[in-house]
Structure formats: C-alpha cells, structure tokens
Amino acid sequence: MSVAFRREGDDEHLEPKFEHPIPVGPNLVTARGLRQIKQRVVELQAEVAELTDETTRKIAKRDLRYWSTRQSTAELPPKPSGERVEFGTRVTFLLDGREKTLSIVGDDEADPASARVSFSAPVSRALMGMEPGDFGDFAGREDAIEILSIAVFPQS
C-alpha cells in the first residue's frame, strides 16, 4: 500500500502547537496595557487550576507562559511631554490629505479598529519624533504625513 494512503493515527494529522511568538524589541506598555496583562495572567492562572481536560489545559498553560513573560518584561516608559510624537501620545495627522488620529501603545495593547497602534508599526515609526507642523515621509512618499496635533492620553 502506498504511504499516501496509510494513516497511522489521528495525532499525526493534528496541527502542531507552538509557543506564541514574542514580538522583537522592548516590551513597552502603557499603564492601561500593564493592567490588562496582569489581569490576563490572573485569569489564566485560575483557568489552568480548574481545567481537567489535558488538551485544553496545555493550551491555557501555553497562553499563561506567553502572558507571564510579557508581564515580567513589561517596561513603563516615562510619561511623554506631548511636544513631539512619542510612545503614549495621541497624534492627529494628515496622511495623503485625510485626517487620522492614532494612539501609540504597546504591542499587546494595539487595536487598530480602536485607533490604538503599536509603537513598532510602520506608521508609528514614521511619526515618532515629529512635532506639530512637521511633514514626514511614509511608504516611500515624501511629505505624505503632516502632524496637526499631539496630546498625552491619560495613563491611568
């Protein structure tokens, strides 16, 4: 019989379970982001303690390892001044003539649908260090970005 038609067991066809990838670079977090990470660790610790199904427990333990690592490596940077685009600021800018507002947050707190973008995202990297009135390049286009305003969002 051809090897293509042989089936040794169900387990050999399951997708392998890998650790969650840790983003490269520093683990900068806002105060809100740190609270979310801590809450997730507490929830997962309780979940792991109560689970009896081994497969589900392994998945929860993998998640707990990820979030515990993120908690232990979290860095709260100093509060931004609001004079230039930095981690922890909300920036309003024109991109190709359209007004956009983004908050620059940590990797785990990022939610583009809520206008919270990771500091490591290309648009955030393009905005960093700019001040109101500055023009900047983005996606290979000169002066594609114009900074309109910068605000420090609440850190609580």
Rank of each mutant, 00 (worst) to 15 (best):
E75G: 02
E43Q: 10
S114K: 14
R90W: 09
G136M: 02
K61M: 14
G140R: 00
M1F: 12
M1K: 11
L102E: 12
G136R: 00
S103R: 15
W67C: 05
A144W: 00
E142T: 00
R65I: 04
S103Y: 09
T89E: 09
H13K: 13
E99M: 06
R32Q: 15
V29C: 03
E109Y: 08
G88A: 04
F138A: 00
R84K: 15
G106W: 08
T69K: 13
A74C: 05
E99I: 05
L44R: 02
D107P: 01
A121M: 05
A4K: 06
G140K: 02
T52P: 01
P78R: 07
R90M: 14
G129H: 06
D134I: 00
P154D: 12
A144D: 00
P132G: 08
D137G: 00
N27G: 02
V48G: 01
S81V: 04
V123A: 03
L34A: 01
T55P: 00
E75D: 10
L148P: 03
A144C: 01
L28K: 02
V91M: 06
A31G: 15
T101S: 14
K79T: 15
Q36K: 08
F18Q: 12
P80Y: 10
S118V: 03
I147H: 06
K61H: 07
E75I: 15
D137R: 00
L95P: 01
A113I: 09
D63L: 10
T30Q: 04
P78S: 13
S118N: 09
H20S: 05
R32W: 14
G88N: 05
R32C: 01
R125C: 07
F135P: 02
Y66A: 11
M130A: 12
R70G: 03
F138L: 00
S2P: 15
I59R: 10
Q45M: 05
M130D: 08
A113R: 11
P16K: 04
I59D: 13
S72W: 07
F153Q: 07
A151K: 14
T55K: 12
I59W: 06
E146W: 06
S2G: 11
T52A: 11
E131M: 13
K61C: 08
S149G: 04
T55E: 13
A126I: 00
P154W: 08
S81H: 10
V29N: 05
F5S: 13
G25K: 01
T69Q: 12
V85D: 11
S120F: 07
V29L: 03
S120K: 12
